[in-house]
Nucleic acid binder design. Structure first.
Lengths: 126, 126
DNA sequence: ATTTTTGTTATAGATTTGATAGAACAGTTT
DNA sequence: AAACTGTTCTATCAAATCTATAACAAAAAT
């Protein structure tokens, strides 16, 4: 699992971790049932604090992406199709970005093209 | 311009303001050329601090959505079609959400349907 | 069975961010 | 001339972020 953290970024480290772990799974580098590195191991690899990694893991668990077995480790979950709460949460997070795209002059078709391009980039590791 | 601020929210007040002002414009409640309330007026209406509103306005200016004329006021800009920097920024902001949707088991078509639904909801004021 | 590793919990310190408050300045608008 | 505007400054407070140690008990590895 290749993860890079930028300390200078305005994005919190634990959020960077969350995003990059999600991308690893999305592009197929990791799959359901795989174990994540221990919080201590990943923290050491990235030269960040154990608690920062721990926070990321628990956020991923809240999102339903991993399960944390206490004293054992974190495992990637298999997605349950059409989880209503996840759908609701994603809607709330997508909405301000869609509104901004509209205000900046993007047509509906252009927004869909943007999403299409992002999906391609994720799967093609770009 | 109807704006509601939740002090208890985990979303910063200045971010709530940004999102709601953008939505007002996206759904057509406000248009290019319209003036925004002065930072003091809006702050008083919402019972928040003047500097909080001021921060929101400057973020909106960074996004290219309004222009701030010093000592005069803030005016909604007309969108320049296909601004490359805005497109790049939107891509970066959309990307982690798209990846999360994929990981949570959404198919490409379902993501597009989600975006479609959001666009409808914005324009129908829901 | 012992050692190592695991997530968990607790405390503490430093830095940054978010929000508020009050005041003053100078240009714009009325 | 008076009111209003965004700007700038100082100051305070709470919360969020990140780091650092340490200790605990259960799971895993040896």
């Amino acid at each position: 699992m290749i993860i890079r953290v930028e300390a200078e970024s305005d994005i919190p480290i634990y959020t960077q971790l969350i995003n990059q772990i999600i991308e690893c799974i999305a592009r197929g580098d990791m799959h359901s049932g795989d174990s994540l590195p221990s919080v201590r191991t990943l923290a050491a690899d990235l030269s960040v604090n154990m608690h920062t990694v721990n926070k990321s893991y628990h956020e991923l668990e809240k999102k339903g992406i991993i399960r944390i077995a206490p004293k054992s480790g974190a495992v990637i979950s298999s997605p349950k199709t059409f989880d209503p709460s996840s759908f609701q949460r994603l809607s709330t997070e997508f909405r301000p970005l869609v509104a901004e795209a509209i205000v900046l002059g993007m047509e509906k078709e252009e927004i869909h093209e943007l999403v299409e391009l992002i999906i391609s980039n994720i799967k093609e590791r770009k």
